[in-house]
Structure formats: structure tokens, C-alpha cells
Design a binder for these strands. Structure first.
Lengths: 216, 216, 216, 216
DNA sequence: TAATAACCGAGACGGTACGTCTCGTCTTAGG
DNA sequence: CCTAAGACGAGACGTACCGTCTCGGTTATTA
């Protein structure tokens, strides 16, 4: 009799299903309000009002305001990067650097990043989300460096983790600490540093890279 | 916040003067409690109790809890650095890198930094305090790089601002973003990168001898 | 304060309705604590705790602590009197006088009356509540005097308002001003005064009153 | 040498003597502010400011705010009554009744009386001040009644305490409780009541002649 | 078709921290 | 030793927000 897909764990629950509309409205309202007033001044009641939703509807989805904020940050970060492969190590690295530059020159990202970082330092859930995200992203970036090594543009004993930190470090340092300019000059200087600093010991030249380059 | 008497003629105000003891007790209690429970769980009432002070005594000094937190952060940052001058550019840079490493492996700094950064991104007062601090600190660091240029260890068209960001960037990136290890390996890798990446175009003559110096 | 729904069609408000249980608990706790510590030492936080209620729940109902106190006084006064009709004017008056005596020898009434009076002198709302209460009560008492007039025990041009003030005046004067004894002697002396002082000019004797009486 | 009245125990204290000016300024300011805002809204700081005095100067004279209020009330009450002796019991009583009427139709007295009474009900010090005042005042009033008895206008077994309460009771009842009119009609009605209600049993002989007097 | 169950918006609930206010004391410099 | 000014410790006030609960009502699946 009543065998309803015992293998499929789907288990359709009884009762009225949750409204997908509310899910989206809550996240949108949260992101808007975070951008407007900052994370600290975010009020759950305001989110509910802006989303046209009862507070209980939020708390049915998120255990706490911090969880809501965490999920909203997660939604921000969900975009995927595309690994460039132009044949030129310099161009590939520059593409990555400029992409990041643009991402954090945009209003929302730059505005919320400090709060995101603060939140991560305190919340287990966010930190592990960060780890998943980082692992994924760096897996992509790593390919670019590996191609550079294969081409002979970068030394083959390159510390990949460190190289990735050098690619993003100065940018984030300016963004978060010194308030220095985040621009193309920064991106190209970073790339140039990497190419020189991590160049192979012996000066054998690149196989696939375009030869001439007069930096800037 | 603290500059009250612009010059010595400052008119002595009537009435009982503020107790310097209370100023210190409030800041100490604030820093202690921030380290213990985090910035978010800081309670003004607890600060008052720990400092042996009435709440009004705190609010006579600070307009709000946020102001109190900001000033406490300011107190954290007031320490001065010493510029090393060993004769070796590599050694000097390594000293600086290791100093920073140690500073942010310590409990308090690392624990509070994300909150400090978040706070700075929102509060004008803290940001300008940050600028003063940064300007001062970088003025010292710059000397090390200039000596390196003079020695011929670093290219003479070096972008000093960028070089400073490279020195600290990877460390802060790991600290704030990737949660990567902050250790001597990081410090020495960073220094090595700088020496190679910013090496003069022409094969360098000497390393430790102070030769010609066409600074800038 | 309490009149919300002007007629039966009253629009049912949305949201969770107020809890009648809380209304009662707040008033009870207020009266208890006023009796225990006096009106001046009444703490809103204590009321909330005793009532098992949050402070906001009190402030949702009352604009301020004074409003709460006013309403609590109002609740004290809501009791109804029963007009005696024994056939004897003297007995009826004595009954009334003794009732009042007892009411204000009891702890709560006597303890809170001075504060109530003080509060009334300052607060519009309480004063009008007092007026409603007084009008109602005196309407009842008036009947007793009117029966006395009809029986010929009291002069028919009796100033009823004044007579009522004489019935209660000495008692309240002792209670509030002189701290004199509030007892049966006072009650019977008052009644005797009224019977003699307001007796008809011509000595025609009562029709319905019991004849002989040797007071005490 | 320096012998300054060694016998007079006066004990001239060393140091600067207290300023009598301050005493008066404090009391004046207190009475003004009590009349303006009510006793409850009286702030010690406001009194000090209005009196042009430091708070400590107030607290050197009064142990607490309640003490200050008590003393201010005392200052209100310090006036002495003059016992009338016209030869007519009715006229004397009427004089007393009208005097009281006028006293409490004035703004300040009427305005502060409820607060005074409330304060008395709670504070030992004020209550005993009240007792002293009452004893003194009633000693004077009593004479009028005794003369009435002597003249044969009042019964000689008159309960003097009760008679005094009747004289003032209705007035205070209206003043404090019913908010009824305080006027000459009330005064004369009260006097008439007393004369009839406390008339001698046997038909009175004379009215104004001083006959026998068995004063107690 | 009716019953059941979980959903929905609205808003009251208990609790807790905030920032303000007042009390009565204490600490200045000065009379 | 007094004075005016005003900071001090203590603690209550009234507000704001969190996360839960309670309404009347809606939208699905189950019987």
C-alpha cells in the first residue's frame, strides 16, 4: 500500500509548503538593508517589514539574526570565477587581478567585506563556508600558476599557497587596512612582482609567452 | 576625543576635575572584556562594574558604546615601532616581517583586529586615527627600503607604497581572509619575494656595502 | 485608558491580542508592592518581576510609572457600597459611618490614601475618576438622608452636599491631618451631631425611628 | 587675650560661618519650585541653581531632599493664629472658619497640601512637626469652644477634640477628597451645625452673657 | 469533501542592554 | 571651615531589539 518512494529520501512534508517568494524577499531585504545601514544597524524587524513578511517567517528559516546575516553574505559570494587561459601567464594573472580589483571596487562588496570578515572571525558556520569557498576558488587560481610553471615563466618549486596570497594580499591590505587605492596600477604591479619574484633561477625564457613587454 | 587644551593658556574649568584614574580604569576594563567575550558581547554595565565606576562616568567621556570601543582600539595601537638597521637589507626586512608576525600571533591583537577593521570602515574618527598611525609607521618602514635602494639591493624606481603593501599584505590576507598560517616561513618567503621581485634590473654589484645612493 | 471598543462592531485588531492575564498580574503586583514599600519606593522593574512580565509589557499599557500608579489607585476604588435601609435614620447613618471607619482602618486603604490624594491633585485622569466615583457613591448616600427627611428626623431644607461632607469630613480630617483615632466613638459622635444639628426646627418626632435610644 | 564669651556656651565655630543668605535662598527656591512643578518634580539640582548655591550647601543643611521638603513645608505653616474673642460664640467660630477658608483658597497652600499630607504619612519627622503644630493651634481654638460652653451656647460635656474636627473636617474633606467648593457658605453652614448640634440639652438661657464657667 | 498540518502576516510577549537622569557624596580652587 | 561648580558611584527610568508565541487565516496533502 502506502509505499511512497521509500528509496527517494525526498519525503514530501505535509502541510502548507514554504513560500519560495518569502525566501527571496528576505534575502533581498537583508542585503539592501545591510548596504544601507551597515551590518550592525540591521534590524530583524526592519527586514521583515521591507520583505513584507512576519518575523516568525524569518525565524522559521534562520535560527538567529547572525544566521540570516551569514546566509546573506553567502549569497553575495556565490558567483563563480572563470579561469583565464590566454596562453600568456602575464595576461592570465592580470585578468585575475583586475577581476578581483573590479569586484571590490563595486559598492556592495567593499562596503560589507569588513563586516563579513568580522563576522567570520567569530562564527564557526561562516568560517567553514569561507573555507569551502576559498578551497574552490584557489583550486581554479592554482591552475594559472601551474600553467606558468609549465611554460617556464615561474619557478617550478613555487609555493602555490604563498603565491596566491601574494596575488590577493596587497589588494586586501589596501582595502581593509591602509585604505590605499585599488586600481589597475595595483593589479599590474602585483603581477609584475610575481613574475619577477617567482621567476625561475636560470633565465631560460618562456616558451608560450609573448616576448616583448614593456611594463607600463 | 582627548585633545582638550589646545595650548597652555587653557582655562582651568571650575568644579571637580575628571579623575584620570577613571579614564584608565574604563579603558582597561573595556580592553579586558573585549578580549574575554568579544566586542559584540561587550556590555557597558559590565565595563562600569569592572572599572568600579558608574555608568554615567563612562557616558560623560564617551557619547556611546561605539565611541568607547573606538577609543579602546585607539589605545591598542599607540605603540611605536623601532626601525632596524643591521646593514643587511634582507635582515632588516626579515626583522620587520617577524615583528609583525609576532604582534598578530599574540592573542589580543589577532582577536580584536577583525572588529577593529569593521569598526574603522564605518567610523570616521577611527579611520583618521588609522591614517595618523599608518603614516607614522610607514615613514619608519620606508627608511629600510630606502637604505636597500641605496645599497643597490632594490631597484631605485621602486614604488615604496606598493612595496610596503607587499611586506604586510600576505600576512594580513592570511590573518583576515584565508586563515592561513602566520609564521616565520611566511615572513621569510615574503622577504625573499621582495628582494627578488624588486631587484635592480642590472645585475647587482654588492649586497651589504653601502655604495652609491641616488635616492629617488 | 480602558475604553477601547466604542461599540460592538469594534474592528478586531490584527496580531496577537494583549493578554488579559498580564493586565491583572501587573495591577496586582503594583498594589502589593505599593502596600509593602509605599508608592514612592515602587519600582517598575520590581512590578514586572513580581507580575512575571517584561517591562515593555507594562509600558505597552501605561505611558509612564505615574500612569500605572494612577490606574492601580483606580482599581482600588472600584468597589461598590450598599445603601442600608433599616427603618431607623440613626441606624442607617451609623452603618454608613462604621463602614467607612472600617474601610480606612484596614491597611491598604489607609496606607495608600495620602498618596492617592496627592496623585489626584496633580493628575487630570485620576481626578475625573474620582469625580465619577464620588458622584456614584454620594447618589447612594443621599438616599439615606432623604429618607431621614421624609421621616421627619432631618430638616427638609437640609443641604445634602454639606450633610455628606459632615458625615465623612471629621473622619478624613483625622485620617489625613490630625492622626486622631478612627473608631466607633467617632462614628457615633458624627451621627449624633448630624441628627441634632440637622434636626427639624419644630420638635415633631420621628415617625419611623425607634423611639428610645441612649447612645452608648 | 582671646577670651570670647567663655561662659556663654555659644561655642563659636572656627572657619567661615554659614551664610544666612543661603538658608533663605534655598527655602525660597524650594517653595517656588514646589509650587511650579509640584513636589514630585522637585529636583535638588534645580533648587541649587535657582538659589545660586552649590548642591553641597543644601546637603550641609539638610540630610536629604525629603528633609528639605519637610522644612519648606514647615516654613509654610509657621504663621500663628489669633484667637478671636468678640463675645459672640457664633461670630468667633465664623471668624475661625473663614480664616481657614481663606488660607486654603490661596494658591500655595492648596497646591501643596496634598503633597504635604502624603509626605507626613510617610515621614516620622514631618509627622511630629505636624503634632507640635496641631497641638499649638488646637490649644488656641479650644479656648473659643470653652468660652461658648461658659456662655451656655454649647453643651458642657462637649467633646472638644471632636468639635475641632467638625470645625475643620468638612473643609478639608472638600479640599482633599471631593473637590467641593471652599467658600463662606461652607464656613457658615459648619458654624451653624456646631451651634445646633452641640447646643445644651436644656433650653439655653442666654447667648452672649458670660455666666458660670466650670471649665473642666 | 472534510480534516489535518504547516504555513502566513501581525504584533504582543519575557528578557536584556542601552543611554539618560537624579540622588547624595566628594574634590577642586577660592573666600 | 565655608563657598560654587561639577564629577563621582549607584541605580531606576523608559526605549529598543531579540527570538518566541499567539492570534485569525491560507494552502497544501491526506482521508
Amino acid at each position: 500500500m502506502r509505499a511512497l518512494s521509500p528509496d527517494q529520501s525526498a519525503r514530501r512534508p505535509v502541510g502548507r509548503p514554504r513560500e519560495a517568494r518569502a525566501d527571496r524577499a528576505i534575502l533581498s531585504a537583508t542585503l539592501e538593508l545591510m548596504a544601507e545601514h551597515g551590518v550592525k544597524a540591521l534590524r530583524v524587524g526592519e527586514v521583515a517589514a521591507r520583505a513584507g513578511v512576519g518575523k516568525a517567517t524569518i525565524y522559521r528559516r534562520y535560527r538567529s539574526k547572525d544566521d540570516l546575516v551569514a546566509d546573506a553574505f553567502g549569497a553575495l559570494v556565490d558567483e563563480q570565477i572563470e579561469v583565464p587561459d590566454s596562453g600568456s601567464t602575464r595576461d592570465d594573472l592580470l585578468t585575475l587581478a583586475l577581476e578581483t580589483t573590479e569586484l571590490y571596487t563595486g559598492t556592495l562588496g567593499a562596503k560589507l567585506l569588513p563586516s563579513l570578515i568580522d563576522e567570520m572571525s567569530r562564527r564557526e558556520g561562516l568560517a567553514s563556508a569561507r573555507d569551502r569557498f576559498m578551497t574552490e576558488r584557489r583550486k581554479g587560481l592554482r591552475v594559472v600558476f601551474e600553467r606558468g610553471i609549465a611554460r617556464g615563466d615561474l619557478r617550478h618549486d613555487l609555493d602555490l599557497e604563498f603565491a596566491l596570497d601574494v596575488l590577493a594580499g596587497p589588494l586586501f591590505y589596501r582595502l581593509l587596512v591602509t585604505n590605499g587605492p585599488i586600481d589597475e596600477a595595483l593589479a599590474s604591479a602585483t603581477v609584475e612582482l610575481i613574475l619577477r619574484g617567482f621567476a625561475p633561477e636560470s633565465p631560460r625564457r618562456s616558451q608560450h609567452t609573448k616576448k616583448r613587454h614593456n611594463s607600463k
